[in-house]
C-alpha cells in the first residue's frame, strides 16, 4: 500500500482534514508527521538559509522526518487563490526547496493550484488511481471538511476579549502558537481569531483591503478592521523574515494607533524564548486593563 505523507505544518492547519479524508477515501495510507518540536525545527534549520521565516524552516523539518517513512509527500504549490490573489513567494518556492532537500528519497506530489483548487486535487487523484469516478466520490466525501477551521472555545462568562492576529500556520502550530494562546488565557482573556469570522468578511475587498494582493494578508487585514473596535486589544504575531507581514503589520499598527486600540507586535523566530513572550504578554495585559477602565463599553 502506498504511503502518502503530509507534513503537519503550513497549509496542513487549513486543509489538513480535507487532505486526510480525501486520500483515505482514495484508499491510501496517510502518515502525518508529529507536532512540531525542537528536534524537528533543528532538522529544518539545516536545509534552508537562516533568513527564511520560521514556518518554512519548520516545514523543512517535517519533510525531513517524513522523507524516509513514506513513498510520496503531498505538498501542493499554492500560487493563486480567490481569483488572482497570490499566496507568498516562499509558499510558491517551498516545493522547489523540498524537491532539492528530498532528492531521490521519495516523490513529491505537488499539484499547482492556480485558482483551481478542486481541479488540482482531482488531477492528483487521477494520477494516483487512474479512476475518475473514484476520485470524484472521494472529493465529494472530503469537501465538508474544507470548512472545518480550528477554533478556540471561549468561556461563557463575559471576559475581556483579545484578538490574536496571525496566520493559521503560526497560530495553530504547537511550537509557535500554543504558548502564546496559553499565556493570554492565563492572564484572563477570551481569545478571538480570524477563524471565528465568516468567509464573507475575510474575503471582502472594501477599503484598503483591495490593494492587498496577498490572500492571507487580506484576511488578516479584514479581520483587523472587523475587530478593531470590538476587542480590548490586538496581538499580532509575526515570524521574523515574513515579508508580507512586515508591511501589512506596519499598516495595521499605524491604524491601531489611530483607533487607540492597544496593539502588540510579537516577532518570533527559532530563538524566541517562552519567558520573554510571557513577560511581554503580561505587560500588555496590564496596559489593556488600564485602558479598559477608561473604556467600559468594550464588554462583549
Amino acid at each position: 500500500m502506498i504511503k502518502i505523507g503530509i507534513p503537519r505544518a503550513l497549509f496542513y492547519f487549513r486543509y489538513g482534514e480535507f487532505w486526510q479524508h480525501f486520500f483515505r477515501n482514495l484508499g491510501y495510507e496517510i502518515v502525518v508527521s508529529p507536532s512540531t518540536n525542537k528536534q524537528i525545527l533543528e532538522q529544518g534549520l539545516k536545509y534552508v538559509s537562516s533568513e527564511i521565516c520560521l514556518p518554512v524552516k519548520i516545514i523543512c523539518g517535517h519533510i525531513e522526518v517524513l522523507k524516509n517513512q513514506v513513498d510520496a509527500i503531498f505538498l501542493p504549490r499554492f500560487v493563486e487563490l480567490n481569483h488572482g490573489l497570490y499566496t507568498c513567494p516562499k509558499m510558491i518556492g517551498i516545493v522547489d526547496i523540498a524537491q532539492i532537500q528530498v532528492g531521490n528519497a521519495c516523490e513529491i506530489l505537488s499539484p499547482k493550484i492556480k485558482d483551481n483548487f478542486m481541479l488540482a486535487h482531482f488531477q492528483t487523484g487521477l494520477k494516483l488511481t487512474g479512476n475518475p469516478i473514484k476520485v470524484i466520490k472521494a472529493l465529494n466525501r472530503a469537501i465538508p471538511y474544507l470548512s472545518h477551521h480550528k477554533k478556540l472555545s471561549n468561556s461563557e462568562d463575559h471576559k475581556q476579549r483579545i484578538l490574536l492576529l496571525s496566520h493559521f500556520y503560526n497560530l495553530w502550530d504547537d511550537f509557535i502558537g500554543k504558548d502564546i494562546i496559553n499565556s493570554f488565557q492565563s492572564c484572563g482573556f477570551d481569545i478571538a481569531t480570524k477563524e471565528d469570522l465568516p468567509d464573507k468578511v475575510l474575503k471582502s475587498d472594501k477599503g484598503f483591503a483591495k490593494n492587498i494582493r496577498w490572500v492571507y494578508e487580506r484576511e488578516l487585514y479584514n479581520a483587523f478592521q472587523y475587530y478593531s473596535d470590538k476587542v480590548a486589544g490586538i496581538c499580532n504575531i509575526i515570524s521574523f523574515g515574513c515579508g508580507p507581514d512586515s508591511l501589512i503589520g506596519e499598516i495595521m499598527s499605524k491604524q491601531a494607533n489611530e483607533y487607540k486600540t492597544p496593539f502588540l507586535q510579537l516577532i518570533i523566530d527559532e530563538h524566541t524564548s517562552k519567558t520573554g513572550i510571557n513577560t511581554r504578554i503580561e505587560a500588555f495585559s496590564e496596559i489593556i486593563n488600564r485602558n479598559y477602565q477608561s473604556k467600559p463599553y468594550l464588554t462583549k
Binding site: 534552508v48 533568513e51 513567494p89 516562499k90 518556492g93 522547489d96 532539492i100 515579508g243 512586515s246
Partner: peptide, 13 residues
C-alpha cells in the same frame, strides 16, 4: 537585500 523573499528561494536553487 536581507530577508528578500524571492531571492531567498533563488538562493536554495
Amino acid at each position: 537585500p536581507f530577508t528578500c523573499m524571492p531571492e531567498n528561494i533563488a538562493l536554495e536553487a
